[in-house]
Design a protein around this nucleic acid. Structure first.
Length: 370
DNA sequence: GAGCCTTTGAAGGAA
DNA sequence: TTCCTTCAAAGGCTC
C-alpha cells in the first residue's frame, strides 16, 4: 500500500505542475488579448476623433451656406420687382443665391445629381458582393453566351446570383467585408488632396457644387468690385494666414473667403454650440499628440511645436513600451520564483512524508519483532 | 471622351 | 422608418 502511494506521489505533482503551466500559458494569452484589445480601442478612438472633426467642419459649412441663402433671399425678391432697373454689374450675393438656389431646386426637382469630377486620389467605394461575383464569373458567362450582349450577360449573372446558395454567396459577402474594411481605413486617413479637383466628399457632391459655384462667383467678383462689409473683411483680414493654413490642411484649396469663414468659426466666432464643439475638437487634437497647449502665433511655429510634441510623444510611448516590457519581465521572474518556492515546499513535504513512512515502517517492524 | 446600358447591394439623405 | 438616389464593376455603343 505504502509503495503504491509512493508511486502515485510524483504523478500527482506532475499533474499539478502541468496545471500551473496551463494557467501560466492562459494568463499570458489573456494578457496578450487585453493588449490587442487596447490597441484596437486606441485605433477606434482615433477614428472617432477624426469623424467628429469632420462632422464639426460639415456643420460649419452647412451654417455658412444657409446664412448665404438667407441673406440673399430678400435681395432677389426686390430685384424681381424692379423690372425697369438698369442692368447691373455682377452682384456676388445675387449670383451666389441664384446659383445656389438653382442648384438646390434642380436637385429637389429631379432628385438626381450631376456626375462629379471625383478626386482620383479618393479611395474607391467597396464593391458589393454581387459585383464581386460578377467580376469572378463574367468571363465564364461571356464564353457560355458569346452571342449575347454585355447587358444580357449582366442579366444572366444576376439570375445566377439569385439562384446561388447562401453558403456560396457568403464567400462574396466576406470579400465585400474585406473591401469595406480597406475602404474605411483608407477613408479615415484620406483628406481631399487634389486642388485640381477640389475636395469632393463622397455623398456630398451637391453641397460641394454649391460651394464651388459660390466661390467662383466670389472670386470673379473680387476681380471687378470691392465689396463692402462682411465678405470683403473675410477676404482681406487674414489672407496670409488662411493661405498658409489652406495649403497645409484645407480640402478647399481655392476658397479663401470660405476658408476664412471656417477659420473664424473654428476660432469661436460662431454660435456657442460651435464654440463648445470646437473646444472639444481642439482637445481631441491635444489628446492625439500628447495633451499640450499650443501658443504659437504663426503656422510655421505651430508646425515646429507640433513636430516637437510628436517626438516627445514618441519618446513617451517608447518609454511606456519599455516600462510594460520590464513589468512583464518582473512578472515572469516573480512567477518563476513562486514556482521554485512551490517546488521546494513540495520537495520538503515529500521528504517529510518519506520520513513519516520510514518511521511508520520501522515502527511496524519493531512491533512485529516484539 | 463622356455618358448610357444592365444588375445588386450598400450607404446616405429626404420626407 | 421608408423611399429614393448614387455609386461601385464590366465593355460596347452612341453622340
Amino acid at each position: 500500500m505504502s509503495s503504491k502511494s509512493r508511486q502515485k506521489q510524483p504523478t500527482f505533482k506532475a499533474v499539478a505542475a502541468n496545471d500551473d503551466l496551463k494557467y501560466k500559458r492562459k494568463y499570458k494569452e489573456l494578457k496578450k488579448k487585453i493588449r490587442e484589445m487596447e490597441e484596437e480601442n486606441e485605433k477606434l478612438s482615433l477614428k472617432l476623433t477624426r469623424a467628429k472633426k469632420n462632422i464639426q467642419r460639415l456643420k460649419i459649412e452647412r451654417s455658412f451656406l444657409f446664412d448665404r441663402l438667407e441673406q440673399s433671399q430678400p435681395t432677389n425678391e426686390s430685384e424681381s420687382d424692379t423690372t425697369s432697373s438698369p442692368p447691373r454689374a455682377i452682384d456676388s450675393e445675387e449670383d451666389l443665391s441664384s446659383s445656389a438656389e438653382e442648384l438646390l431646386e434642380d436637385h429637389h426637382r429631379t432628385g438626381k445629381r450631376k456626375k462629379q469630377n471625383r478626386d482620383p486620389n479618393a479611395p474607391k467605394r467597396p464593391r458589393n458582393a454581387f459585383l464581386m461575383y460578377c467580376k469572378s464569373q463574367r468571363d465564364q458567362a461571356r464564353e457560355e453566351n458569346q452571342n449575347k450582349g454585355f447587358q444580357d450577360v449582366t442579366r444572366i449573372l444576376s439570375q445566377k446570383w439569385k439562384d446561388l446558395p447562401n453558403e456560396e454567396k457568403q464567400k462574396y459577402y466576406d470579400m465585400y467585408n474585406k473591401e469595406k474594411e480597406r475602404y474605411e481605413i483608407e477613408m479615415s486617413s484620406y483628406v481631399g488632396t487634389s486642388s485640381q479637383f477640389g475636395y469632393i466628399q463622397p455623398e456630398e457632391s451637391t453641397r460641394n457644387e454649391v460651394i464651388t459655384r459660390f466661390d467662383n462667383n466670389v472670386s470673379n467678383h473680387h476681380h471687378h468690385n470691392d465689396i463692402s462689409g462682411e465678405r470683403s473683411s473675410l477676404t482681406t483680414a487674414e489672407t496670409s494666414r488662411v493661405a498658409t493654413t489652406s495649403t497645409l490642411e484645407s480640402p478647399y484649396n481655392n476658397n479663401h473667403s470660405y476658408e476664412q469663414y471656417i477659420d473664424e468659426n473654428e476660432r469661436g466666432i460662431g454660435s456657442e454650440y460651435e464654440e463648445e464643439e470646437f473646444v472639444e475638437t481642439k482637445d481631441d487634437v491635444k489628446l492625439d499628440i500628447g495633451g499640450d497647449d499650443y501658443e504659437s502665433d504663426t503656422d510655421s511655429e505651430m508646425v515646429d511645436e507640433l513636430a516637437a510634441d510628436i517626438n516627445d510623444n514618441n519618446k513617451r510611448r517608447h518609454s511606456k513600451a519599455e516600462r510594460e516590457e520590464a513589468m512583464e519581465c518582473e512578472d515572469e521572474v516573480r512567477m518563476e520564483e513562486d514556482d521554485e518556492n512551490e517546488k521546494k515546499d513540495n520537495e520538503g513535504e515529500a521528504a517529510d512524508s518519506k520520513e513519516e513512512n520510514l518511521v511508520n515502517e520501522t515502527g511496524t517492524s519493531e512491533n512485529d519483532e516484539i
